[in-house]
């Protein structure tokens, strides 16, 4: 998927001609994500570059790029300050279109779920497993915390939620890293990434749409695991004041979206 076509890195990351070009991790819709270093050669970062989009009118492109990089940086800082687990911001340049963030070691929820469901092939995946339900619950908690501080992500998918890899040494967690633990891939702290479409909002409508977007991502990416999303919502509903109202609003949004009347 991530073919490195003719994309070039923005300055200053294009300066060192001696070192090889850093690896392209993924090509999203709007941005290219590289793993490189910043500030010190031993500080790994996720560099998010938003190249110019030739399909967009240049004025609109400049406006969107600037607004999105600034909004993303502001939201990330706010999350960090309020205790929501997100990558730290290390630098940004909206003229050149880049944002440098802390590198998160781990895998996406999408990969974790795919791995879990694959291992469980057979006719029916075990969706009752403690590990997988626990993970859904942790997602619910993190989303509740995010919404609780007045941030709406805007693009929640299972690719934009990560499970941070557990530290293998030091933390006394060695006992958890037993290779035969089949739910091992589901353990770890849930980290929200990619705040490229995030906005600051405390409106129930925005929060409900946020959840709705994730619900649909679940249904379309992991059709076998659609039922798991209920657990995310259950824990979400218990995790902050106002969550119940959002869940009621979600029902309205569903009527407008997924099952809405489609004329023509």
């Amino acid at each position: 998927m991530a073919q490195s076509t003719t994309h070039t890195l923005p300055p200053p990351f294009n300066s060192s001609s001696t070192t090889p070009k850093p690896p392209l991790i993924t090509q999203g819709a709007e941005a290219l994500l590289y793993k490189t270093t910043y500030l010190t050669p031993s500080t790994p970062i996720a560099l998010k570059h938003r190249p110019k989009k030739s399909y967009r009118h240049p004025t609109l492109d400049t406006r969107l790029t600037k607004a999105r990089i600034l909004a993303e940086a502001r939201v990330l800082v706010k999350c960090k300050r309020e205790g929501v687990v997100v990558p730290a911001v290390l630098g940004a340049d909206w003229e050149e279109g880049w944002l440098a963030c802390e590198w998160i070691e781990g895998k996406t929820i999408r990969a974790a779920l795919d791995g879990y469901l694959k291992r469980d092939v057979g006719e029916e995946a075990d969706l009752r497993g403690e590990g997988v339900r626990g993970l859904m619950g942790r997602i619910g908690v993190v989303l509740a915390k995010l919404h609780g501080i007045g941030v709406v992500h805007g693009d929640l998918t299972t690719s934009n939620l990560m499970v941070r890899q557990l530290e293998r040494e030091g933390d006394g967690l060695e006992s958890l890293s037993l290779g035969e633990n089949r739910e091992k891939g589901l353990e770890g702290e849930v980290v929200i990434i990619d705040f490229g479409l995030a906005t600051q909002s405390v409106q129930d409508e925005d929060r409900a749409v946020d959840l709705y977007v994730l619900e649909r991502a679940f249904g379309s990416t992991h059709p076998q695991a659609e039922g798991l999303f209920e657990e995310v919502l259950r824990v979400y509903g218990e995790s902050y004041k106002g969550a119940k109202v959002v869940l009621r609003r979600l029902e309205d949004v569903r009527l407008r979206g997924r099952k809405k009347s489609m004329i023509g």
Binding site: L156, L197, V209, A217
Partner: peptide, 11 residues
Amino acid sequence: LVDLPYAVKGM
């Protein structure tokens, strides 16, 4: 180009 609202929410 007139500045108009731009409303994308995920997909």
